[in-house]
Nucleic acid binder design. Structure first.
Lengths: 109, 109
DNA sequence: CAACTATATTACCACACAGCAATGAATATG
DNA sequence: CATATTCATTGCTGTGTGGTAATATAGTTG
């Protein structure tokens, strides 16, 4: 497997994508979409954010390929565009659990 | 493997960690550390950032457990604290390559 | 103790962006 | 065509944070 050279430009691209995931609101949207595709209105209701807010987050997620769009009449259906997102989140969760564990260890000493 | 419940609080913790990786400067620092531990001074030279700047990034990376510290006299040696970082970056790179590929496909049509 | 060095911290500025309200664009319905 | 609905876009404000210079802290050396 050939590796990309980690030039500053490539690092910037990678950072850009991590940054998009570095926002609770967007993670919440992605988590909602985990159960299947949803319209913007559905997501507004599910997340409790404003319509404009959700729409902007979805644009960003779409631009970077994290979600895909499907237009149907007045509605726009969004869905997960890359399952690797959850792989990333799982690894982060693993990190979280490690942190909790080592923190408990510190307190126990 | 038991899964963490993705409550808003947990999502915030995950996002916080993605956010830290969502900064080219910090990714560059982590990439430098890939070859082995380095002092702050080494990193300042290697990255070309200011000393205060590097120090602040390192503090943040350390707080969230991405790097570990080892003090030795006047010097502080930093090293990667969790190899999973590279796993995360590899997945992101895979995403990047997919993006490039599909973009090429679009142009080819 | 005084002078020096490596790192951390503080204060500040500039900029990016999340959230919100208002408006616009596209499509459907009567 | 007029109206209503869904979503996208724009303009605005407040907050957060990256970069930098100045200063503080900790450790070393003489």
């Amino acid at each position: 497997m050939r590796k990309l050279a980690l030039t500053p430009a490539v690092l910037a691209l990678i950072a850009e994508r991590f940054k998009v995931l570095g926002e609770p609101a967007r993670l919440q949207i992605l988590d909602c979409l985990r159960r299947g595709e949803m319209t913007v209105g559905d997501l507004v209701e599910a997340t409790g954010f404003g319509q404009a807010n959700d729409s902007k987050h979805l644009q960003l997620l779409h631009t970077l390929g994290f979600v895909v769009r499907r237009k149907e009449g007045l509605f726009v259906h969004y869905a997960i565009g890359d399952e690797r997102i959850f792989q990333l989140c799982d690894i982060m969760c693993g990190r979280l659990e490690s942190e909790v564990k080592s923190r408990r260890k510190l307190l126990a000493v």
